[in-house]
Simulated scan of single mutants.
Amino acid sequence: MTIEIKICGISTAEAVLAAAHAGASHLGFNFYPPSPRFVSPDRAAELAAITPASVKKVGVFVNAEDAFLAEAVTKSALDTIQLHGKEAPDRVAEVKARFGLPVWKVLSVETANDIDAASAYAEVADLILFDTKTPKGALPGGMGMGFDWSLLDGFDKSVTWGLAGGLTPENVADAIRATGAPLVDTASGVEAAPGVKDVDRIAAFCKAALDHD
């Protein structure tokens, strides 16, 4: 099985090049201002300019307005839009139609009911990304928290999907073997501090994911 790898919350040129060199298929630029990984559209444009063409650029948004989406998409030449807020299926469809790009929808998981919610998005999202539900008042992701992977056992995996939430170089191979995830996504799992990427951990994460067999 070919594994795709997204390194999320990229904010420096060093991290761009480290992730690309290590075999990441996607880089995530976080456009949510409260996050320690936030980058402005102008900063993301600088990082996009040095991103190899073989690596897809994913913009991460939380309940963003169209004007901000348009600025980020245009300046950063994004390949994909990731919606990490409370966007309903009709909003996902609207964003996809307006911008003509693949749209990923993040679903926050705590119980089996959260997995079941994927069915409402299956026809409108290009990929469902399962992440951990964070405590009320916390950031919606990037907290280093995992969820019970066995909750995915009943999920219809003919739907294009990916796994996030507490993934690290130490557990990503186990996560892939346990869930069959075709795409894995990490942010805090490859950091030395919140928002500060560690190039050695990026390399170790990618190697562990690619060598999971």
Results as ranks from 00 to 15, higher is better:
residue 99 F to W: 14
residue 96 K to P: 13
residue 90 D to H: 15
residue 100 G to I: 08
residue 113 N to Y: 07
residue 138 A to D: 11
residue 109 V to G: 09
residue 146 G to T: 07
residue 151 L to A: 00
residue 95 V to S: 12
residue 91 R to S: 13
residue 142 G to W: 09
residue 133 K to V: 10
residue 153 D to S: 13
residue 117 A to R: 15
residue 161 W to P: 01
residue 135 P to T: 13
residue 180 G to H: 01
residue 118 A to F: 11
residue 111 T to F: 12
residue 176 I to G: 00
residue 147 F to S: 09
residue 142 G to Q: 02
residue 139 L to I: 04
residue 169 P to H: 07
residue 170 E to F: 13
residue 162 G to P: 02
residue 104 W to F: 09
residue 130 F to A: 04
residue 170 E to V: 07
residue 167 L to A: 11
residue 138 A to N: 09
residue 156 D to E: 06
residue 140 P to H: 05
residue 173 A to Q: 02
residue 124 V to N: 09
residue 111 T to K: 06
residue 181 A to N: 00
residue 135 P to C: 14
residue 94 E to G: 10
residue 126 D to C: 08
residue 123 E to V: 14
residue 97 A to K: 08
residue 151 L to P: 03
residue 96 K to E: 13
residue 124 V to M: 11
residue 147 F to Q: 05
residue 167 L to Q: 04
residue 170 E to W: 03
residue 160 T to M: 06
residue 154 G to M: 00
residue 182 P to A: 10
residue 142 G to T: 03
residue 94 E to Y: 10
residue 129 L to I: 07
residue 131 D to M: 07
residue 146 G to M: 00
residue 106 V to W: 06
residue 154 G to D: 02
residue 114 D to T: 11
residue 174 D to R: 00
residue 112 A to P: 12
residue 121 Y to C: 14
residue 97 A to S: 15
residue 153 D to Q: 06
residue 149 W to A: 00
residue 145 M to Q: 09
residue 134 T to W: 15
residue 93 A to F: 13
residue 182 P to Y: 05
residue 101 L to I: 14
residue 96 K to R: 15
residue 121 Y to I: 07
residue 162 G to S: 00
residue 179 T to P: 08
residue 139 L to C: 04
residue 107 L to N: 04
residue 156 D to I: 03
residue 142 G to D: 04
residue 165 G to M: 03
residue 115 I to G: 08
residue 142 G to V: 07
residue 130 F to W: 08
residue 109 V to N: 05
residue 155 F to N: 01
residue 137 G to D: 06
residue 95 V to Y: 10
residue 154 G to I: 00
residue 169 P to K: 01
residue 132 T to N: 08
residue 152 L to D: 02
residue 180 G to A: 04
residue 140 P to N: 05
residue 162 G to A: 01
residue 163 L to G: 02
residue 96 K to M: 09
residue 92 V to K: 12
residue 162 G to E: 01
residue 170 E to R: 01
residue 132 T to A: 14
residue 91 R to K: 10
residue 179 T to E: 04
residue 99 F to Q: 15
residue 123 E to T: 13
residue 99 F to T: 13
residue 180 G to S: 02
residue 117 A to P: 08
residue 106 V to G: 12
residue 149 W to M: 01
residue 95 V to W: 09
residue 178 A to C: 03
residue 132 T to W: 09
residue 132 T to M: 06
residue 151 L to F: 00
residue 123 E to A: 14
residue 112 A to V: 13
residue 137 G to F: 06
residue 155 F to L: 07
residue 169 P to C: 06
residue 173 A to D: 07
residue 157 K to M: 01
residue 134 T to M: 15
residue 116 D to F: 06
residue 133 K to L: 14
residue 169 P to N: 03
residue 148 D to I: 03
residue 104 W to A: 07
residue 167 L to C: 04
residue 178 A to D: 02
residue 130 F to M: 11
residue 177 R to H: 01
residue 122 A to I: 11
residue 128 I to T: 09
residue 122 A to D: 12
